[in-house]
């Protein structure tokens, strides 16, 4: 039956037990059935490793292609794609790195993977025009606290105990030679976004990170600002907001209606 044959092939490609698949192949002259099956196994595994290399270029450069391919091969076999849309393949890689025996000792690696995945997601996110400072001109100053911002669809924010943006920047694929970077140099919070064509990633302060997280959850500016200042008492809130409006972090805003006062 065709269904059983296809399941046997999938199992042979991913799990390594290819006996049922090979048994279905005609013993023609030339290559053995096992060698013929291996061509398909290699097609799948190698092409999917290449997808991961493209999604995680800085990690690949940092650890070297041989080591990367070793981990990527294990990932492909443990988490093969579920949808034929390879732009979305590899989202579990950060968690996989955190548990895989050969990579889990490098503590910053999962966060670096989260940063690279955020860039990948930003590349394929919906296109929306960000709002700028001028868009807020109609908002009366006494209503600022009631503002709620919709984050641009390309936005991700990552908190790490390590200097992941420095590491990423040191090993980014468009650099001719990698730079030196110390993962222990600082804890970094990173904002990733693609307001128009180019993906950007920048380090933001811990309070700014809290601010974005709260706004993302739908909080008003007043509530989000209060949470942000709790995280980072010295946060310059105005500068942080201006930074986001300049950078294109927000795709829209609304003003919460004031509660009706009793007559």
């Amino acid at each position: 039956m065709l269904r059983e044959l296809q399941q046997a092939f999938a199992q042979g490609v991913l799990a390594g037990d290819d006996r049922a698949a090979v048994a279905a192949i005609a013993a023609d002259a030339g290559l053995s059935p096992t060698a013929r099956f291996d061509i398909h196994r290699t097609n799948t595994i190698v092409s999917l490793i290449a997808v991961l290399q493209a999604a995680y270029p800085a990690i690949c450069r940092l650890v070297g292609e041989d080591k990367f391919n070793f981990v990527a091969r294990a990932y492909v076999r443990a988490h093969p794609p579920k949808v034929p849309q390879l732009a979305s393949y590899g989202w579990r890689f950060a968690n996989f790195l955190a548990t895989f025996p050969q990579s889990r000792s490098i503590a910053y690696m999962p966060d670096l993977a989260r940063l690279e995945w955020a860039r990948n997601k930003a590349l394929f996110a919906s296109d929306l025009d960000p709002i700028d400072v001028a868009a807020l001109q109609t908002v009366p100053a006494d209503r600022y606290g009631a503002l709620a911002f919709a984050l641009h669809p390309s936005v991700s924010a990552i908190a790490s105990r390590y200097a992941i943006h420095q590491i990423w920047d040191a090993y980014r694929p468009d650099r001719a030679e990698p730079l030196a970077a110390d993962p222990e140099a600082a804890a970094e919070h990173v904002l990733v976004l693609r307001p128009r064509f180019a993906i950007e990633s920048v380090v933001i302060s811990p309070g700014d990170f809290t601010l974005l997280l709260a706004l993302k959850a739908g909080a008003t500016l007043e509530t989000a600002a209060s949470a942000a200042v709790t995280t980072e008492p010295s946060l310059d809130l105005q500068a942080a907001l201006l930074g986001h409006l300049t950078r294109g972090t927000f795709a829209g805003f609304s003003i919460a209606q004031p509660e009706e006062t009793q007559p």
Partner: peptide, 20 residues
């Protein structure tokens, strides 16, 4: 074919040429 049991193999695998 490329999909079996909900897994996408990213390869163009051959069919047996049968009535089924």
């Amino acid at each position: 074919w490329s999909v079996a049991g909900g897994v996408y193999l990213n390869d163009l695998l051959p069919l047996p040429y049968t009535e089924e």
